Computed example of a mutant assay.
Amino acid sequence: MKFNGFIITYNRPKELLETIQKVFAQSYPPQSLWIIDNSSDDLTEKEMNSFLTEKIKYHRIGYNAGPAGAAVKGLELCVADGADWVYWGDDDDPPPFTDTFEKLFSLIDEIDDVSKTAQVGLVGTLFNNMKGEFRRFTDSELKGKKILEVDSIAGNQSKIVNKMVIQSGAMPCENLFFGFEELDFDLKAKELGFKSYINGTLNFELRKKYKKDNFKAGIIRKRKIENLWRQYYSTRNLLFILQRNRFYSALNYQILKMIIRAIFSFKFGLNYGMKTTKFTFYGILDFIRGVKGQLLQK
């Protein structure tokens, strides 16, 4: 069995090198790692030149393709190298435990039908097709559950993908650029008959590590105002994904919910509310117009 991986990076050479070191410090590391560089300058490329080996390979996109476009390239390159399983990583979010990969492959060993397994990962959620909402597991649902089926495994959660699902045609849509590209991939894999799993016990250990046990759903959290531009992509892309999957009830529900949440965002201040409303409005508008790709940044 060949285990390869890729890490997506954008203008963060220092964080990238630290993450590479932590990935190869795993008790069960990948045999090789592609660096997929979205950077707008050549600093990362210059930094990587002295680190390239048979184990570390480099591919510069040449423009900012976003996490979605970079993920497509990473999946393609790893499968072309003969990988059976592919680690889908990010430059500032290494595996949180030194034995994360080892435990995830132990999980794979216990799955009855590996040929129909799309992926395994650390943290996963269920997805409500009628509302277009994610549901996280409670602590009690995670405890003692080594094998737990999920609908989606988010990015930066030690996502390890089976080559068979990639060869079957499941790929994230490159034109999403940023936001929910993992959900897009996961739903395509599910549509093809593949299943996704997490190690529930390991997920619960992660919550305790970051003091996030006693999880409670339904809390509206305030974003950092400098990150509100992301609302545009999460709004637009979720609506595109719901439409593609013909989840029309969820599509209508989400548009209404997005409008209501934009209105309630004013409780965090006028400037916060105005920015949230602007990005939400443009996200809905570009969905209606069928516009994809990179349109907004900070």
Rank of each mutant, 00 (worst) to 15 (best):
M1D: 09
K2R: 14
F3D: 01
F6K: 01
F6C: 03
I8A: 06
N11M: 11
R12A: 13
L17N: 12
Q21W: 07
V23N: 09
A25C: 03
S27A: 11
Y28K: 14
P30L: 00
S32K: 14
L33Q: 01
W34R: 01
W34V: 03
I35A: 06
D37C: 08
S40L: 14
L43D: 13
T44D: 02
T44A: 07
E45N: 09
K46Q: 15
M48G: 05
M48W: 02
N49F: 06
N49I: 07
L52E: 05
I56Q: 06
G62V: 05
G69K: 12
V72K: 11
K73W: 08
G74K: 04
L75A: 10
L77G: 08
C78M: 02
V79K: 06
A80K: 14
A80H: 10
D81E: 15
W85A: 02
Y87S: 07
Y87H: 04
W88T: 13
W88Y: 15
D91Q: 12
P94I: 11
D99M: 00
D99Q: 01
T100G: 07
L104F: 00
F105K: 02
L107F: 01
I108F: 00
D109E: 12
D109R: 08
D109M: 02
D109T: 02
D113I: 01
K116A: 00
K116F: 00
G124E: 10
T125I: 10
L126V: 02
K131L: 11
E133Q: 11
F137H: 14
T138H: 12
T138W: 05
K145H: 13
K146H: 06
E149I: 06
S158C: 15
I160V: 12
I160F: 08
K163I: 06
V165G: 07
I166P: 07
S168I: 01
C173L: 13
C173A: 15
F177Y: 15
F180A: 11
E182Q: 12
L183E: 02
L183G: 10
D184N: 15
F185K: 14
D186F: 14
D186T: 04
D186Y: 11
L187S: 04
K188Y: 07
K188E: 10
K188A: 08
A189K: 03
A189I: 05
A189M: 06
L192M: 13
S196I: 04
I198A: 12
I198Y: 10
N199F: 05
L202T: 04
R207V: 07
K208H: 01
D213H: 12
D213V: 04
F215K: 08
K216Y: 08
G218F: 12
I219P: 09
I225Y: 03
E226R: 12
N227E: 15
Q231A: 15
Q231P: 01
Y232S: 06
T235R: 00
T235P: 01
F240K: 01
L242D: 04
Q243D: 15
R244N: 15
N245P: 11
R246C: 10
A250C: 09
I255E: 03
L256K: 14
M258G: 02
A262T: 00
F264M: 10
S265P: 10
Y272S: 02
T277W: 08
F281C: 09
I288K: 07
G290M: 05
Q294T: 01
L295S: 10
